[in-house]
Design a protein around this nucleic acid. Structure first.
Length: 350
DNA sequence: ATTGCTGAAAGG
């Protein structure tokens, strides 16, 4: 917080390096700081952004949507996945198997041996490419990979289902299975809305030709000249593509996406269903507001880029902590319990 | 380089 910042900026010569927190390191790097002068004696490490700290070259759409539930929880989830309460794990796994069963209704899943990082990205691209003819034939596709860049951060996601509706609109459907037989709270809906809006944002940019081959190779650090493994080439051939290196596939992806005149997504729907009884609880139609989506994404990505500290939920949403696996160890909660909370702005007079 | 890195989504 602000207090810690003042202390660190006063650290003079002779203070020991090595025991500094991330925020203190950031301060030492302020331009004009005397610690930056040569011969000062403090060995400086550049403060890592969360993206660097976790060695992430890209984020998933669900990283951002879970972040919108609680950013602090999302971070703990990454650091201490084994701490998740068993109840939650069961719920998630049930949802997972329901999704898999639905995927298998529309296509088979085969295992392909990979020999390089380029190979594993080639699989994603082939999965994307193979849905184009299916969509054009008016079919329904599931588990379709999408990628794109927002705020200079590469994002990847998997769209649950994409179909042309009876009225000829391209419709995205996201299935959410639930443990209890009623519609979710506003907070959950909000998270799910954001998730599907991100899918549309990324998908539309992709079919509009904004995802150039070099965007992928530069963000993910892949080599276009890397030869693809034999199993990958074999699989590509089955889908109708003759490729030798990763770059070939990137070019094909770009051409197919832009020349196949697939429209942007017209309609976003979320279907909530009850796990146990397998009954539909309700369908939400989501309004897409590009500017709002971009603003939200910008806010969440600011954390990842090290432009701001991690945040937990506001006091109004502290009820979320009741179902959180990390509530006992949560720094955000501790901070809130201790501090006499110097909120900015005047207090509400009631 | 005081090292190196990834199935996404799964639900409250």
């Amino acid at each position: 917080g602000a207090e810690a910042a003042i202390q660190a900026s006063m650290a003079g010569p002779g203070s020991e390096p090595g025991e500094l927190s991330d925020s203190e390191l950031l301060l030492l790097l302020e331009p004009g700081d005397q610690a930056l002068q040569p011969g000062f004696g403090v060995r400086l490490k550049r403060a890592q952004t969360p993206l660097e700290k976790y060695y992430l070259k890209y984020l998933c759409v669900t990283d951002l949507s879970t972040q919108s539930w609680c950013e602090q929880q999302m971070v703990y989830g990454r650091e201490l996945p084994q701490l998740q309460v068993p109840e939650t794990v069961v719920l998630l796994n049930t949802g997972k198997s329901i999704h898999l069963a639905r995927e298998l209704e529309v296509h088979d899943v085969v295992r392909v041996h990979v020999t390089s990082r380029e190979d594993s990205w080639a699989i994603k691209i082939l999965n994307l490419l193979s849905v184009i003819p299916e969509l054009q034939a008016g079919g329904c596709v599931r588990e379709l990979p999408v990628f794109g860049v927002i705020e200079d951060v590469f994002l990847m996601g998997i769209i649950d289902e994409l179909c042309y509706s009876a009225t000829g609109e391209l419709e995205l459907r996201e299935l959410k299975t639930r443990g209890r037989p009623f519609m979710p709270s506003g907070a959950q809906k909000k998270r799910d809305y954001f998730q599907v809006c991100l899918y549309k944002y990324i998908f539309d940019a992709m079919v509009q030709g904004k995802l150039k081959p070099d965007v992928i190779t530069s963000h993910i650090q892949l080599r276009p000249e890397q030869p693809l493994g034999s199993q990958i080439r074999e699989h590509a051939q089955k889908v109708g593509f003759t490729v030798t290196c990763f770059g070939d596939l990137l070019e094909l992806m770009y051409l197919n996406l832009t020349l196949s005149d697939i429209p942007g997504i017209d309609c976003l729907k979320i279907e909530y269903s009850h796990q146990e009884s397998n009954t539909l609880l309700g369908t939400e139609v989501v309004r897409f507001e590009e500017e709002k989506v971009r603003e939200k994404a910008q806010h969440y990505l600011a954390y990842w880029k090290g432009q701001r500290e991690v945040q937990g939920v506001e006091i109004e949403e502290a009820w979320k902590c009741q179902s959180c696996s990390y509530s006992e160890i949560c720094d955000w909660r501790k901070k809130r319990a201790e501090g006499p909370e110097q909120r900015s702005g005047p207090k509400k007079s009631k």
